[in-house]
């Protein structure tokens, strides 16, 4: 079971033109793999995560294909895609805590949801209760209204819900951003547990927090300005990053033990380019310390420079 994304392009259509939020992204995820997707805001990681399940608002699928388990995903067709949603591809949305219908008891909502996939609530109840127990929720939560649960409980409820039908692909969109550090660890480890128990085959974890990804993901993909900058197994990215953006990003992260007086960390000067009219050549060149003339003229392709390690940089390949 695997996901293969080829040259995916998703633009936002606006009055001022097309914002090229996702401009040619190619990667694959194997069965059982948790891929972390990191980058600054506006890099396209949320767009990528969302486009795999639902094109919202002004998102337009402009090019490229997505194949899941050998079957092409009709991401631009809302109706056709419905067949896949929840059952094959599922998402834990960013503001999961507000994803529960406040006027429905949770159990009732679950029932309605699974009924849309032709599964009877009765049949799945036992498995549901097992999973609730796994994440530390009591069974009676099914008889409660969402307002009676705390934020962390709602988050866990949505996690169970999203994975109830054992989807092949789970997209977790910034699910730890709004949490405290203690809950972050619990939630992140729960994600791994879901994968280990086979509830989910593969996962894309979208976040800006690289350190969480280091803890839980098998591979790490770094995005910049709508394109993939680097993708490699997590350990490799942390120890031998090849793309200058990745290197600068990692070296700008403070870790416990690093102090200002002893080791002054540096950020990345400048801001990401506008995606309405992206610059020619490599999109990182204006902020890149090692850019050469070729970087302005030609856009570096995203190529594999080592087994399982792909980079889009002229200086790296």
């Amino acid at each position: 079971m695997s996901l293969q994304v080829t040259d995916l392009r998703v633009y936002y259509r606006t009055l001022a033109g097309d914002v090229k939020a996702l401009d040619g992204v190619t990667f694959g995820i194997a069965d059982g793999e948790i891929m972390g997707l990191a980058g600054e805001s506006g890099c396209g990681k949320s767009t990528l995560g969302n486009s795999l399940i639902r094109m919202e608002g002004r998102m337009r699928h402009v090019g490229g294909t997505v194949t899941l388990d050998g079957v092409p995903l009709p991401i631009d067709d809302q109706a056709d895609m419905n067949h896949f949603r929840f059952a094959e591809v599922s998402i834990i949305p960013q503001y999961a805590m507000s994803a529960l219908n406040p006027t429905r008891k949770i159990g009732k909502m679950v029932g309605e949801l699974v009924a849309t996939r032709g599964v009877r609530y009765h049949d799945i109840r036992e498995e549901l209760e097992r999973r609730l127990e796994l994440v530390g929720l009591a069974r009676d939560v099914l008889d409660r209204y969402p307002i009676e649960l705390s934020g962390g409980m709602k988050q866990r409820m949505v996690m169970v819900l999203s994975t109830l039908l054992d989807p092949s692909l789970l997209i977790a969109d910034e699910i730890t951003s709004a949490l405290d550090v203690s809950s972050q660890r619990a939630v992140a480890q729960t994600l791994v547990e879901f994968r280990d128990r086979g509830f989910v085959k593969s996962m894309i974890v979208v976040t800006h927090d690289v350190s969480i990804l280091y803890q839980i993901s098998n591979t790490l993909a770094i995005m910049y300005a709508g394109k993939l900058a680097e993708k490699a197994p997590t350990d490799v990215i942390m120890s031998r990053p090849k793309h200058p953006y990745t290197r600068l990003l990692i070296s700008s992260l403070p870790e416990i033990g690093v102090r200002f007086e002893e080791q002054r960390l540096t950020g990345i000067p400048g801001t990401p380019p506008s995606l309405l009219n992206p610059p020619t050549g490599c999109r990182f060149r204006e902020r890149c310390p090692i850019a050469i003339a070729r970087c302005t003229d030609e856009e570096p392709p995203f190529v594999e420079v080592e087994p399982n390690h792909s980079v889009a940089c002229w200086m790296a390949s």
Binding site: S46, H208, T271, P273, S274
Partner: peptide, 22 residues
């Protein structure tokens, strides 16, 4: 709102506050 990956449609206002092209 700030750059924490809040999914908004860019274009009406630039995400992350890049210089406004309009």
């Amino acid at each position: 709102q700030g750059p924490q990956g809040v999914p908004t449609v860019p274009g009406a206002v630039p995400v992350g506050g890049r210089p406004d092209p309009r």
